[in-house]
Design a protein around this nucleic acid. Structure first.
Lengths: 416, 416
DNA sequence: CGGTAAATTTCACACCGTGATCTAAGTGTG
DNA sequence: CACACTTAGATCACGGTGTGAAATTTACCG
């Protein structure tokens, strides 16, 4: 009920800065002239706002466009080098830290392999923090980027990330043995990271979903669901253009939607979950039960063998039916414009399954909402987790019209 | 990406007017002093905004509170008589039109019985429009309320209401035989309703959900799902304080969530829907299959008999398991703070089923999100559909700080 | 009747967006 | 090569806004 803080006349300017900055960022180089109608601002305001952004170094001129018989328009764009963002992917076997400029072009990357997991498969949170901090300093040192120009660091982790508390993001990761690990607080502990750098922690699947929305199959949709099928199954729900989080940031746990009351046991302890039928781990298990076997050591290779095997048609059709039913649930409940099937297993199975999945979804979903929806394959691989993570601070940067950065820079200068 | 039009300094004022008005409306009489911290506005602004609202007649003084040794605070409240709203419920057997003042106290009510339905159970849309218009004039005439003081009319109808088109709300109601009926355009046709009156059409179940959010079991929650179990099953999803609509306003079709791939045939044509197990119609059908019988003519009476029958324990336990699994899906996907079980059948079954439903939901849902959720019974009966409908124009009124009303009033005055 | 305390109002100030007007920077023509 | 023409962008007076401190109002208490 409090709403956004748009109370004073200054907030108005910040808001308009943000509008202009976002428009320039997403819709490429634009002239002041074009910016006016696009942002519903008067020419005078455009001039003022742009002048301010240029003075702050956030926007720069990018050539000009001739016009027949008149002053040429000067094109403007967000200066790619005016800030940097870092994306971190805490994966199953390694921590990847990537440095991007504002246009999300990769400037540097560091992969730090995780030490062998403890026998029970849990991660040591302190070790993760060390690897993130180490990767960050390495990536900065290698490129000469100063911490002061960092807009922020986005971190994708496995498990549920609850950011509703006061002390920063807390991670609950059943599969990695994390129970309420205060990752954000640990990273903010003195000595770990350069101070004053904004941190954004989110579930890795959701950051992948963000990447798909910004640069992949979700582009342009206001309401979409990015499904992520890997060893397990998750989803990233976009409602009215923003990721829907729920009350404790754990919305979109699609994998544990019930498709068969009293059905197959799922690794979550419940029965009949979607994940128990279409997750890669479960799918392989079902294959084994049906007499199948494979030689690959990893799930990805095994799944490829399953796809290539001659006698798995019925298993795959059954999988398509369950996946279609699960997608129908998404259609009925969220009424999105687009559903994207992603995740490494989703992309691997996609070409074979997408058509039967569409048919199954059509039969299980209500006609009207299904007619509004397209079901597509994702376009980005699992590599995009870091890009999606980097998207978190960048989105904040654009929303605040770059004000956040100013604060950081001045904060850093206080310490200088 | 366009965002709300808060560009000029004037929009700032409108926004603050809305904040103050809403706070006064929902949190009862308040003094200017208390309003300051509550709205994050300075004392000076509060004075200005309140003076404006009082001058417009939207806010009035409501006594004062003594303080020991100081000027007493003057309490302010939204003037209940400064405007009126109308709620319409297009039900299965009658059209009900109710007139409320701003505090949603009922001033008048008219029930117009529907003529006997056509043999195929379809409604004649023109007849409905006539009944709505007739009820509206009757209710206004009976109380002497002028159309000029009408904030707007909210209408709850069965079926999916798609408001995404340009020509107003369009209704798709499979059960009443409506296929893309342009109800809003028909109501706006000259001669039907007093001109210039804002219309708001929404699904009746969703208006009931709104009522439950404003005045019932949903009060205070930011993320909630109001489930509505009647003959069929629906839901109203509240995300971040606002009803989530999806891309064509048909989000929340929870009743056709798949709980049993290849399960019972549902009246929607699909299989294994939640509605096919826990909807009143389906539940009675299942009882009949198990050898049960009843004497009541209507579903409500029949369901009461089912509850009282001695041998329906297993049937009810099974129903609770399905309902619990369906609720678990809501928990996993939406991660709400609260789930309310409502609808006439939900309220009837509630006392018997709520505990086993909670247990089933706990077993099917993920631990973390389930721990954030409470599952409660609704507090409002089906009568609240009109209240919920009236809530639609009222919400707009509060959001715009009463600006909408000003436009209407002046619009009416143009017409002499 | 004066002193004290708390709630409101008033007011100078720093901003903001608008839209008309002015300036800059090109093209085309005689 | 000068001049008119055209279009992009900058400037500026104006009406409007929230802020926060000072002034004013309105009570109670001794």
């Amino acid at each position: 009920m409090a709403g956004p803080r748009r109370r004073t006349v200054r907030d108005l300017r910040r808001n308009n800065r943000a509008t202009v900055l976002s428009k320039l960022y997403f819709d490429g180089p634009l002239s002041r002239q074009e910016l006016g109608p696009l942002t519903a601002l008067s020419s005078g305001s455009i001039s003022n706002v742009v002048a301010e952004l240029v003075a702050d170094g956030l926007v720069e001129e990018a050539g000009s466009v001739d016009s027949d018989g008149g002053r040429p328009r000067t094109l403007l764009r967000v200066a790619p080098g005016s800030g940097h963002v870092v994306g971190v992917d805490v994966g199953e076997t390694r921590v990847r830290v990537e440095l991007f400029d504002l246009s999300l072009s990769e400037l540097a990357r560091v992969d730090a392999p995780l030490p062998l997991a403890a026998p029970d498969g849990t991660y040591d949170a302190h070790e993760i923090v060390r690897l993130i901090a180490g990767g960050l300093t390495e990536v900065l040192a290698g490129t000469g980027v100063t911490p002061a120009s960092l807009i922020g660091v986005g971190i994708g982790v496995p498990g549920i990330v609850d950011a509703s508390g006061a002390s920063g993001a807390v991670v609950h990761g059943q599969t990695i043995g994390w129970e309420a690990v205060p990752l954000e607080a640990m990273l903010r502990a003195p000595g770990e990271l350069p101070p004053q750098i904004p941190l954004f922690v989110d579930n890795g699947a959701k950051t992948l979903g963000r990447a798909e929305m910004w640069f992949g199959a979700g582009r342009g949709a206001r309401n979409a669901v990015i499904t992520l099928i890997g060893s397990g199954v998750g989803a990233c729900v976009i409602a009215d253009g923003v990721p829907y989080q729920g009350s404790s940031s754990s919305a979109g746990e699609w994998g544990h939607t019930v498709l068969q009351v009293g059905g197959r046991l799922c690794r979550c302890g419940s029965r009949g979950c979607l994940e128990a039928y279409v997750g890669a781990e479960a799918l392989l298990e079902r294959w084994r039960e049906a007499g199948g076997s494979w030689t690959a050591q990893d799930e990805e290779g095994a799944l490829a063998e399953l796809l290539a095997a001659p006698d798995t048609g019925q298993l795959l059709d059954e999988t398509a039916e369950f996946l279609g039913a699960g997608i129908a649930d998404l259609v009925n409940l969220f009424n999105p414009e687009r559903i994207v099937v992603g995740g490494w297993a989703g992309l691997l199975l996609g070409p074979r399954l997408i058509e039967p999945v569409r048919r199954a979804a059509a039969s299980y979903a209500l006609r009207h909402p299904f007619a509004q929806t397209t079901v597509e394959l994702g376009r980005l691989g699992a590599d995009a987790v870091t890009v999606g993570a980097a998207t978190l601070p960048l989105a904040r940067f654009l929303e605040t019209g770059g004000a956040e950065r100013e604060r950081i820079v001045s904060g850093a200068s206080w310490m200088g």
